[in-house]
Amino acid sequence: MSERLIRLQNVRKVYKTRDREVLAVSDVNLEVNSGDFVSLVGPSGCGKTTVLKILADLHHADEGVVEIGGDTIPFVAGRDVGMVFQQALLLKWRKILDNVLLPAEILGLPLKASRERALDLLHMVGLKGFADRYPYELSGGMQQRASIARSLVHDPKLVLMDEPFGALDALTREKMNLELLRIWQESQKTIIFVTHSIQEAVLLGSRCAVLTAGPARMAEYFPIDLPYPRTLEMKTGDAFGAYTRRIYKLLNM
């Protein structure tokens, strides 16, 4: 039985400007076990990224309970979180290996061991032989592979992904979905993946959290009982269709 890594209970977040308050997140409840792949799906602007920022300790919740780690799974926010954004955000003047090593340098981890891990990760994400290339020499999908490797180099317990494939074309996006599933199964990390694509949420997640239009409120949180390894052919199956219809209904679509 996996141990619980995250618990959010009745979480609420308000952004304050000079002349008003904006309720971004309201009544979010979420439990994530170590090793889960949680798809966080909802319409644009509903507060999904705010939930990620709370989990990354970049924002603090105004109300509710936020528990990450604990006695059984010790957790340090800066050390134990990896982030992948919609854009790869690689430093153009650094080679790919040096980009992947950046979190290890910032955290002051031993360079030799980190370099070996970075090379292993580049191999795992399909970029063996590209360590000495610059970002402009890689395609968009390859750059995102490098950003995934960078998010793993310091061996975090939790990886947060904010629509990392949203800027890719449809075919590359599907290929990256399958690659991410392979990487998740090999790395055995806990992943929370934000998306507004219902099909992507079902294809990837071991569990799915559905958020309503902003302010974010948890409509439902349920397991996706489709076998691994997942395949694109599953999208044509009855079970896959039942999950997508369930999410459409929750979102009133």
Rank of each mutant, 00 (worst) to 15 (best):
M1Y: 00
E3I: 01
R4H: 01
R7I: 05
L8G: 04
N10W: 01
K13F: 08
T17Y: 14
R18F: 09
D19P: 01
D19R: 14
D19V: 07
R20L: 14
E21H: 11
V22E: 15
L23V: 12
V25C: 08
D27K: 02
N29W: 04
E31D: 10
V32N: 08
N33G: 03
V38T: 03
V38Y: 03
V38P: 12
L40G: 08
S44C: 13
S44R: 09
G47L: 04
K48F: 06
T49D: 08
T50E: 10
V51F: 08
L52G: 05
L52N: 05
L52F: 08
I54N: 00
L55M: 06
A56L: 09
D57S: 13
D57H: 03
L58T: 01
H59P: 00
D62L: 05
E63C: 03
G64C: 06
V65N: 04
G69Y: 10
G70C: 05
D71C: 01
V76S: 09
V76R: 07
A77T: 08
A77I: 01
V84L: 09
F85G: 09
Q86C: 14
A88K: 10
L89D: 13
L89E: 15
L90W: 14
R94M: 15
I96F: 11
L97N: 03
L97P: 10
D98V: 07
D98M: 12
V100R: 02
L101H: 03
A104H: 02
E105W: 00
L107Q: 12
G108D: 03
K112Q: 13
S114M: 06
R117P: 06
L119I: 11
L119P: 08
D120K: 15
G126F: 10
K128I: 02
G129T: 13
G129H: 13
Y136L: 08
Y136V: 05
Y136E: 13
E137V: 00
L138P: 02
S139R: 11
Q144L: 11
A146G: 01
A146W: 00
S147C: 04
V153Q: 07
D155W: 04
P156N: 03
V159P: 03
L160S: 01
L168I: 09
T172A: 01
M176R: 08
E179I: 12
L180F: 12
L181M: 15
Q185T: 06
E186N: 07
S187G: 05
K189Q: 10
I191D: 07
V194R: 06
T195M: 09
T195V: 11
H196G: 14
S197K: 07
I198H: 15
I198L: 14
Q199E: 15
A201P: 13
L203E: 14
L204V: 10
S206W: 06
S206I: 05
A209R: 04
V210E: 10
L211K: 07
T212G: 06
A213E: 06
A213I: 00
A213C: 01
G214T: 00
G214C: 00
M218G: 00
Y221T: 01
F222M: 02
P223S: 05
D225F: 02
D225P: 00
L226G: 07
Y228M: 10
Y228E: 04
Y228A: 09
P229G: 09
A239L: 11
F240R: 00
G241W: 06
G241A: 05
I247S: 05
Y248K: 14
L251I: 08
L251H: 03
N252K: 15
M253D: 14
M253F: 15
